[in-house]
């Protein structure tokens, strides 16, 4: 009975083929992380400086992104962005689906990072900025040389969990038809009765990545803390 149910050998046959699509998953994660971090920093500054109108817009945007499921966001972007752009005469209906996927994860990441950055920037004591101005640094210099490095250290654990969460979230990109690791499971196994083995293979890949990520971030954090104390 169990033989027909699950065949461990198939998992190992599948693994290399799933791994061949890992670059797609990683591309989504890395691009969304970098662009999302930039967007998040922008949003955080808008919130911190209480820029009129933009601040309120940022609050609503962040709340929406944090309050709705990522699957829904994927399809909202997929259907909604071409529809919006159509109104200004731009036709992007034929663009690659990967574009919409990366855009969604970027928009989502920006919202989450905005809150992380804001909290981190706020937690740097105001005496630090005062001291920087006192020795003659400009506002930008003060931010770049004094505030940002300290805030980054504070934000690091949250950035780590954010990255892990993003990796998990990408497992849903296949619902839009992207052939990443999860998409590949469906591409090679759907129609056969070996889907289960495909999912187990994907689970192994995700699990390995997320454990590695956690270890990596733990090490970076430890290193930075040591540097600071010596």
């Amino acid at each position: 009975m169990l033989n027909g149910l699950f065949d461990p050998a198939t998992v190992f046959i599948y693994l290399p083929r799933l791994l061949s699509k890992l670059p797609v998953t990683l591309l989504i994660v890395v691009t969304a992380t970098l662009l999302g971090a930039a967007g998040g920093m922008l949003l955080a500054l808008v919130r911190l400086f209480r820029t009129p109108v933009l601040n309120q817009a940022a609050v609503v945007y962040i709340s929406f992104m944090r309050g709705t499921p990522i699957v829904v966001q994927l399809f909202l972007v997929f259907y909604g962005v071409p529809w919006l752009l159509d109104h200004v005469g731009i036709d992007i209906n034929r663009w690659d689906k990967l574009f919409f996927v990366i855009l969604t994860y970027t928009l989502n990441t920006a919202a989450f990072k905005a809150e992380v950055f804001r909290a981190a920037l706020q937690s740097v004591p105001s005496g630090q900025a005062e001291a920087a101005y006192a020795v003659g640094l400009t506002r930008l210099q003060c931010f770049r040389r004094i505030i940002a490095p300290q805030a980054l250290l504070i934000a690091l654990p949250s950035l780590g969990t954010g990255l892990a969460a993003l990796l998990q979230d990408t497992s849903l990109a296949y619902t839009l038809g992207i052939i990443d690791v999860m998409g590949q499971v469906h591409a090679i196994a759907s129609g056969t009765n070996r889907m289960l083995e495909g999912y187990v293979g994907a689970a192994i890949i995700f699990l390995t990545l997320s454990v590695a990520l956690e270890k990596g971030f733990g090490r970076i954090e430890a290193n930075l803390l040591i540097k600071r104390h010596h």
Binding site: L5, A164, Q168, D169, S171, L172, M182, M195, L196, Y199, V200, A202, A203, F206, L207, T208, L209, S210, V211
Partner: peptide
């Protein structure tokens, strides 16, 4: 905790679904 946090929820759901329907 390591297992559940490392494996995407959608995979867990699909695994459960497949074993349920088969087994």
């Amino acid at each position: 905790v390591v297992l559940i946090k490392g494996i995407p929820l959608v995979i867990i759901l699909l695994l459960l679904y497949m074993t349920m329907t088969r087994m």
